[in-house]
Nucleic acid binder design. Structure first.
Lengths: 120, 120
DNA sequence: TAGCCAAATCCGGAGATGCGGATATCCTCA
DNA sequence: TGAGGATATCCGCATCTCCGGATTTGGCTA
């Protein structure tokens, strides 16, 4: 009989570690409402660009977000994790975030304030 | 308009930080099946007693477990977090863990192997 | 009270993590 | 091709986290 519990918590612990940070959780909360590019997040989080980009790379390494290049801009969006347990946990979290109306308003303003779709 | 998203992710980030550790996730997985005392967890995790106790104190500080003293033994059990968002996340996690039959068997053996209810 | 068991805390060190400024890379447009 | 904007990475630093051994604390029983 193995000493470790006979099922693997490692995938989930990796995902929860990535989510267990205030800034990254705020990023996920914003992305729950729309795909966003880095400049939106820099504004929305009021953080230096380097910090924002680094946190995004952590989320990407954890398999929580994917990047899509569009000219000079890079858009990030949430993606469902491979692992089933992780996927159901993240789905529940994103669902809760997406119900937050105040977040929805914030995201709408961000989309207009900068990035490819900003009004000139 | 505040730069921070207008709703507070801090309670959730604290809980996810506590859960974002392989050992602590294994503890929660075991506790999903039964209240257990420290000696059970030391055995089940195959970790030094000091590490086990320290991880339990982290979970307690995060409001995820509570302790109950019974003579020389201290029993730990899961408790629903105060914050509603945390509570729903943890509930889903514990439900998933509690369906793992293999874990259930492991816990049954642990309960017999040591602690107040052990066969002599 | 002495001895013993379970559990919590202390300790020092190794490695991970977060940070912001500076720099590098990639892309677009004139 | 050169300038400039958007993003990624590098850098050094401070802080946090995890670890296991050793010690301390609390409670039971002889």
């Amino acid at each position: 009989m193995p000493a470790t519990p006979p099922f693997d918590v490692r995938p989930l612990s990796r995902v929860l570690k990535a989510l267990g940070d205030e800034t990254r959780l705020r990023i996920v909360a914003l992305l729950s409402h729309s795909e966003l590019c880095v400049c939106h997040l820099v504004r929305g989080l009021a953080l230096p660009q380097s910090s924002t980009s680094r946190h995004l790379s952590v989320l990407k390494a954890a398999g929580l977000v994917e990047a899509r290049r569009d000219g000079t801009w890079v858009h990030y969006r949430l993606v469902p994790p491979q692992n089933a347990l992780c996927r159901s946990q993240v789905r529940a979290l994103v669902l809760a975030f997406s119900k937050q109306q105040a977040l929805s308003h914030t995201v709408a303003k961000l989309l207009k304030s900068c990035g490819p779709g900003a009004r000139r």
